[in-house]
Amino acid sequence: MMILITNNEDVVEQWKNCRDIVIMKRESDNMLDVLYCSRDLLHKGHCLLTHPFTGSLKPNESPYKSILVSETVKQLHVDHVATIEQCIASAQKSLENRPIPIYSEKLLRDFRLIDKDLISNGIMRAQESHQK
């Protein structure tokens, strides 16, 4: 089983019927809430399956973020905690510099498409090596 934290409805649409994935859908217009939610899971011993900063789009550009986290709990994965904390600090800073603009629906669809493609690569890789 794996946990997929996302605020991207296209990602939910694509992976909702997948047996080995629990989806935590977040309602937020930027990626911080998804990052905080993932961080709280890492603090309890879950570990990252995909990197929080997928894609070269900066946190104040793409509103969407999907992160895959392990369902099983082992002891604290210190490197992953450090990684997500640094991503949160960077996202807070860049959103503070300039909040996410209001995009047209067409553009939002493009952002959702890229986020969906990147996380799907991670999910397929995880399924291939039947991550638990």
Partner: peptide
């Protein structure tokens, strides 16, 4: 809670806590 961070911040006597929250 996160020993490597405690080491980086320079603590000399460190006792690992149970969990972050």
């Amino acid at each position: 809670t996160v020993v490597p961070i405690a080491l980086t911040v320079g603590a000399n006597r460190i006792v690992p806590a149970i969990g972050i929250p």
